[in-house]
Structures are given as C-alpha cells and as structure tokens.
C-alpha cells in the first residue's frame, strides 16, 4: 500500500476533478491551491526549503502512515470507499438518464437509486466518513468537548473548499436549495433497506460505532445534526445556492445546459472531488505532525 505522501504526489494536476474544484473555489474566500507535491507541502509547513530537513520530515511521515495503528491509511480507505460508491451510483444514474428511452436499458432505470431519501443517506454517509476520518487522523484533540468542537471547526475551516464542494455537489445540486433545512426530515425517512442500497455502507459498516443497522442509523443522524449546524452557517455566510454553484462551475468547465440534478449526476460519475481533497487534507495534518516530531 502506498503511503499518504506518495498518493499526494500522484494526484492529478489538471483534470475534470481539479477543474470542478477550481470552479467552485471562486465562491470561497481564500480560494484553493491544488497541492500535488509533498516536498512543496513540507517546505510550506516548515518554512524552510532545506533538502535535508525535507527528507527527514518525509521519512518520518512515511513511517507514521505505514503504522496501521495510526489511522492514516484507514482514513484514506474511508475516502476511497465513499468515492467508489459515489462513482458507482453516479454511473448507474447516468446510464438511466441516457437509456431511459431504450426499452432494453429501461430496466436499469427502474433499479437506479434516484430517490431523495437515498441521496440524503449518501450525504449522511459522506459526513460520517468525514468525521470518522477526522478522528482517525487527529485523534480526539483537547481535554473537553468544547476543545473537540473547536478543533473540528478549525479542521472544517482549513478545508473550506472541500466542505463547500460537499455542500454544493451532494446537497444543493441534487436536493435543491432548501437541502440543508430538509435533510433532517429526509433522513427520518431513511430505513435500513435504503442504507444497504448504498455501496459505501458495506465498506464503512465496521468502522461506524455501535452494532447493527439501527445503531448506525442513529449515529448517522446524530452526526449529520452536528454537521448541519456548522454547514448551515457556512453556506448562508457564503450565500451558496445551486444556481451559484453551477455558475461557478461554468467558469472552468464550460457552459452547462442541463438541470441541476443532471449536473450532480455528471459530477458524481466523472469526478473524484471527495477523494482528491481528502488526500490533501490528510497529508497536511500528517506533515504538520511529522515536522514537529523530527
């Protein structure tokens, strides 16, 4: 298995994913810089470009990410599981959109999970994966719950573009502008059968706290509740809407004639936003630790 920094070095410098995030980042103050070089990241954190220091940090970061107990690998496999699931679901929906008219493929359309409840369950899985990955990478920082919440929002602030992408691509575009307000009631309608229709759930089930689908559903609902408070404030502060997201994406991807939902399907099927920014977020925290430990 390749280490976190090797994966960072292999991230694409320019493809559909990068263009989509670049487009969206015009909505977020501070913008987004596509970091795909571990050495650049290390010298940014350390404030020094001494090759010997960079080599030491890199060696330490690789030792940390190789240790199974440290959770860096687990965080990345969470992102991978979510990404695979998103692509599979996106591909199916795309097929349904294209083949809806053809009698032979029409049966596929009946099978595809297009309902809003499933979309909501998918979003809640992503939010849960985000929180699990956070604890895998950062532990439970601070001595009190207040410290922990402060640390969580610090992390979210650092990954603003990532959070904006999550809100726009997985909530506002597929579920409409009132998505965040409606999410609670939508999640209320999610049952165990819906959960099992999501490919990512099978991979994540053993990492979620609690035993059984019921406990997992409760965890997902509670996790989303926590996140909604923050996400609601964030998106109203930036004034995020589906319309604005599409306009921002058009600046890099070119004109888009279809509807919001089709845009969401297209992004699901062809981009790795969640994985791409996830690797970058994990790598930064890992390098901050390695730089302090050498």
């Amino acid at each position: 298995m390749s280490s976190v920094l090797e994966r960072l070095d292999r991230l694409p410098r320019r493809n559909l994913t990068v263009l989509a995030i670049k487009g969206l980042s015009t909505l977020v103050p501070g913008g987004w810089h596509n970091i795909t070089s571990a050495d650049d990241l290390i010298s940014d954190v350390l404030g020094s470009s001494d090759p010997e220091l960079i080599r030491q940090v890199r060696a330490r970061a690789d030792a940390l990410s190789r240790a199974r107990h440290e959770g860096y690998g687990r965080a990345l496999s969470l992102y991978d599981a979510v990404n695979r699931s998103q692509k599979a679901a996106g591909g199916l929906r795309l097929l349904a959109n294209i083949g809806g008219a053809l009698p032979l493929v029409k049966r596929v359309a009946d099978l595809t999970p297009t309902s809003e409840t499933l979309q909501a369950a998918d979003l809640s899985l992503k939010v849960a994966a985000e929180m699990l990955a956070f604890t895998q990478v950062n532990g439970l920082p601070g001595d009190s719950f207040g410290d922990f919440v402060a640390s969580l929002s610090e992390y979210a602030g650092e990954a603003r573009v990532r959070m904006a992408a999550l809100i726009c691509f997985d909530a506002l575009l597929p579920l409409g502008d009132q998505a965040l307000q409606r999410l609670n009631s939508l999640l209320g309608g999610v049952d165990k059968r819906d959960l099992h229709q999501l490919p990512a759930y099978a991979g994540m089930a053993k990492l979620l706290p609690g035993r059984g689908d019921g406990a997992h559903l409760t965890f997902l609902r509670r996790g989303v509740d926590q996140w909604l408070g923050w996400a609601g404030g964030f998106s109203s502060q930036l004034g995020l809407t589906g319309q604005k997201a599409v306009q921002a994406l058009e600046t890099t991807l070119g004109p888009w004639q279809g509807g919001f939902q089709q845009m969401a399907t297209f992004l699901d099927a062809f981009t790795d936003t969640y994985q791409h920014t996830g690797v970058q977020a994990v790598a930064r925290r890992l390098v901050e630790r390695a730089a302090a430990e050498i």
Binding site: H69, G139, P141, E288
Partner: peptide, 11 residues
Amino acid sequence: VFTQEKRGFSE
C-alpha cells in the same frame, strides 16, 4: 486550538 492528539503526540 488543539488540532491533533495521538499516542505520544499532541499539537
């Protein structure tokens, strides 16, 4: 703001 806490490390 505390950001990381692992075995043998706190930042």
